[in-house]
C-alpha cells in the first residue's frame, strides 16, 4: 500500500500549513509565560517545539514497534519498510528534542547538558535506534536483515518505559508538564498557552504523518530499485 503521488502532495501541503500555523501560534499568538523568570520567557517558547518533537519521536518508535511485530507475524516486506521508516523519523525527532531541550537548559539551568535522567535516557533512546541501524547495516541478506532488525526493534522499544521508570526514581530537575495538580515540580501552562500548545502538537502530528508517508513511498522505491538491480545482475 502506498499513497498515490497526488494524495502525498496534498498531505505535504496540509503539513506545511500546519507547521506555519504552529510557528505563528508559538511565537506570536501565545502569551509570555508569567510563572518563569522574565529573562527566560522568550526561551520558554521552545516548549512548543521541544515537547511535540519528543512526542512525535515516541509515536514514531511506537509505529516502528508495531510494524516490527507485524513483520515477524506476516513476513510481508511492507512492515519492514514501515519499521525502518518510522525508526529513522524517530531518530530525527529525538535529535530535535534533545537539541531543543539543551537550548532551553542553557538559559534556564545555566548549562547545555545536565545529567538529568530524562535527558540522559532520551539520549540512550537515540543510541538504541542508532544501534538498530548499525545492525541493519551489518547484514547483507534482505530478509534476514528485516527479521533480525524486527526482533531488535521489539527489544529496543520495550526498554524505553523501563528506562523512563528508572528516571522517575532518580532525582530530576526536568519539569513535569502534564501531571497531577499537587505536583511541586509542576510547570503549568495558562489557557492561552494551552491553545498554542495544542495547535503545535497537532501540527507536529501532521508533519510526522506526512514525513512517514513520504519515507514509506521512498522505501518502496528503494525496494523496486533493488529488484531491478537484481534482474540486471548489477
Amino acid at each position: 500500500m502506498t499513497l498515490s503521488r497526488s494524495l502525498l502532495r496534498i498531505l505535504n501541503v496540509i503539513a506545511l500549513i500546519g507547521m506555519l500555523l504552529a510557528v505563528y501560534m508559538a511565537l506570536i499568538q501565545a502569551p509570555d509565560a508569567v510563572n518563569v523568570d522574565p529573562s527566560i520567557r522568550p526561551a520558554q517558547r521552545i516548549i512548543y517545539f521541544h515537547v511535540p518533537s519528543a512526542w512525535s519521536s515516541m509515536l514514531a518508535f511506537l509505529v516502528a514497534f508495531v510494524s516490527s511485530i507485524l513483520y515477524l507475524v506476516t513476513k510481508h516486506i511492507r512492515w519492514d519498510i514501515w519499521a525502518r521508516s518510522a525508526s529513522e523519523l524517530g531518530i530525527a525527532f529525538t535529535i530535535a528534542a534533545v537539541i531543543s531541550g539543551s537550548l532551553w537548559a542553557k538559559p534556564a539551568w545555566n548549562t547545555y547538558w545536565t545529567w538529568d535522567p530524562r535527558l540522559t535516557t532520551y539520549t540512550i533512546v537515540l543510541l538504541l535506534y542508532i544501534a538498530y541501524f548499525m545492525l541493519r547495516g551489518a547484514i547483507d541478506e534482505p530478509s534476514r536483515r528485516a527479521r533480525l532488525a524486527a526482533v531488535y526493534g521489539i527489544f529496543a522499544f520495550l526498554s524505553v518505559p523501563l528506562t523512563f521508570m528508572s528516571i522517575r526514581w532518580w532525582n530530576t530537575i526536568h519539569p513535569v508538564i502534564v501531571d497531577a495538580p499537587s505536583n511541586e515540580n509542576k510547570f503549568g501552562l495558562g489557557p492561552n498557552m494551552l491553545q498554542a500548545f495544542g495547535v503545535t502538537n497537532l501540527a507536529f502530528l501532521l508533519l510526522f504523518v506526512a514525513l512517514l508517508a513520504n519515507r514509506i513511498s521512498l522505501g518502496w522505491a528503494e525496494e523496486r530499485l533493488e529488484a531491478l538491480k537484481d534482474r540486471l545482475h548489477f
Binding site: 540512550i124 544501534a131 548499525m134 545492525l135 531488535y152 526498554s159 528506562t163
Partner: peptide
C-alpha cells in the same frame, strides 16, 4: 563488535 552496541543501551535500567 556489534554486541555491546546492541546490548548496553538496553541494559541501562
Amino acid at each position: 563488535i556489534l554486541l555491546p552496541v546492541l546490548l548496553f543501551p538496553i541494559m541501562l535500567p
